Amino acid sequence: MNDSAPGPSSGIVDLLGVLAYAELAAFLRLAEDAALLAPTLNDRAELGDVAAAEYGHFRVLRDRLSGLGVDPEEAMAPFVDSIDAWHAQTRPGDWYEALVKAYVGVGIAGDFYREAARHADPSIRSLVDEVLADESRSEFVVERVRAALEADPRLSGRLALWARRMVGEALSQGQRLAAVRPELAALLVATDNADGADGTGAIGAADGGIGDLAEVGRLFARLTEEHGRRMVALGLTPGS
C-alpha cells in the first residue's frame, strides 16, 4: 500500500474483521453440522457446499484486509469471543435446527453487516454484498425445511421458537459489539445526508452510547422485517 494513501478507517477495519471471522466460524460450524447431523450423504454434501462457499467468502475478506495493509488476524481477533459464544449458545440439536440456523441465524447476523456497509464506500458495499449472497443456502434450506413441515406440521412450533431464540441472541450480540466497538456501531446508525452522501454517524465514541435512538429504531425495524421474510420463506410464522 502506498504510504501516502490514507488507510481504512477503524470502523471499516472492524466491519471487515468481524465479517471475516463470522464467515470463518460459519464455515467451521456448517462443516461440523454436515458431518454430525445430516441424515443422508446428499444432505451432507449439500450443506458441505454451503460451508465451502462460506470459506471462499472468508478468503475474499482476508485478502481484502491484507490488500488494505491490515493484518487479518488482528482485525478478526476482537470478535472471536463474541461470535464463538453465539455459536455455542445456538448449537443445533438436530438436522432441522441446523438448517434453520444456517438460514435464519446466519442471515440476521449478515443483516447487521449489510446495514453497516450501507454507510461505507461503494467498493466496501459491493464486497459485503458479494460475501453475504445467500441464494444457494436459501434454496437448499427452504426446500428441506418446507418438505419437513409438510411431512410433520408439528415441527413448526419448535422450529419457530428456535429461530426466535437465535434472533434474540444475535440482537444481543449486536448490542454488545456496538457498546465495545463504537466505530463499527457508528456505521450501523450513521445518517445519510440529503444528497445521499455518507453521514457522520451517531455514536458518541467517548461513552460508546448510541446517540440517534430514532435511527436505532429504524435499524431494528429493518432487521425484524428481514427476519420475518425469511420465516415466511421457510413456512414458519414470524411471531409464533
Rank of each mutant, 00 (worst) to 15 (best):
V60R: 04
L24W: 13
S66E: 14
V60D: 00
R62T: 04
L68F: 15
A52I: 09
G56Y: 06
E46T: 10
D43G: 11
D43W: 10
A35I: 01
A51G: 06
R62E: 07
G56S: 06
L37S: 09
L30P: 04
L65F: 03
D49H: 13
E32I: 01
D49M: 12
G67V: 13
R64K: 12
L65H: 05
R64W: 02
L47D: 07
A20R: 10
A20F: 08
L47F: 05
N42W: 08
F27G: 02
L19N: 11
S66N: 11
A22V: 01
Y21T: 09
E32V: 08
L61P: 00
E32Q: 15
R44A: 13
Y21H: 11
N42V: 11
H57W: 04
A25Q: 09
E54F: 01
E32L: 05
A25L: 10
A51T: 03
V50I: 15
H57I: 04
L30Q: 12
A34Y: 01
G48N: 09
A31E: 13
D33S: 11
P39Q: 10
Y55N: 10
L61C: 02
A26M: 06
V60L: 07
L37E: 08
L65S: 05
A34F: 08
F27N: 13
F58C: 03
A22K: 00
D33G: 05
L24H: 13
P39L: 10
Y21K: 01
E32N: 07
G67F: 09
E54D: 14
E54V: 00
L24E: 14
R44F: 01
L28M: 14
A22D: 07
Y21S: 04
E23W: 07
R44S: 11
L61S: 01
A38H: 09
A34H: 03
F58V: 05
L68S: 07
A34P: 00
E23T: 05
D33L: 09
T40H: 11
L37P: 01
L30H: 15
A25E: 08
D43I: 02
H57R: 13
E32A: 15
S66V: 13
H57N: 14
A35Y: 03
L61H: 02
A53W: 01
S66Q: 14
P39V: 13
D63C: 02
E54R: 08
L68I: 06
A20I: 02
A51E: 03
F27C: 07
D63P: 08
D43C: 11
F58R: 01
P39R: 12
L19M: 11
L68K: 00
L24D: 10
V50K: 00
L47A: 08
R64S: 08
A31L: 14
A31Y: 06
L47V: 13
G48R: 06
R64F: 01
A26Q: 09
L68T: 01
R44H: 07
A26S: 15
